[in-house]
Design a protein around this nucleic acid. Sequence first.
DNA 1: CGTATGACGTGCA
DNA 2: GTGCACGCCATAC
Length: 84
Amino acid sequence: MKSDFSKKVIEVVKKISKGHTMSYKEVAILAGSPFAFRAVGNILNKNYDKRIPCHRVVRSDGSSGGYNRGSLQKMKILKKEGAL
DNA sequence: CGTATGACGTGCA
DNA sequence: GTGCACGCCATAC
């Protein structure tokens, strides 16, 4: 599985440094599709990989958005890493 | 192959 | 400042 786009998204998310958050839009842009932020969230939702710090990916509003382990845990991790 | 959905983003009321 | 609706891409069924 994992099409080229999804792989790119994963790669970008993996490149996010600790204590640094990126919006789905930013990830989509770096992935090569500035208007695919929709697909970005979708891919992470169905293909969330353990090596992907998707908890560092937040919405443009700064909302935690969603998380496979619960938005609460996501927020907690961000706070712990210093991104919040 | 075609339709519907989704961890979004922006605009308007 | 908050809530609703529309539009976009990729994936799943």
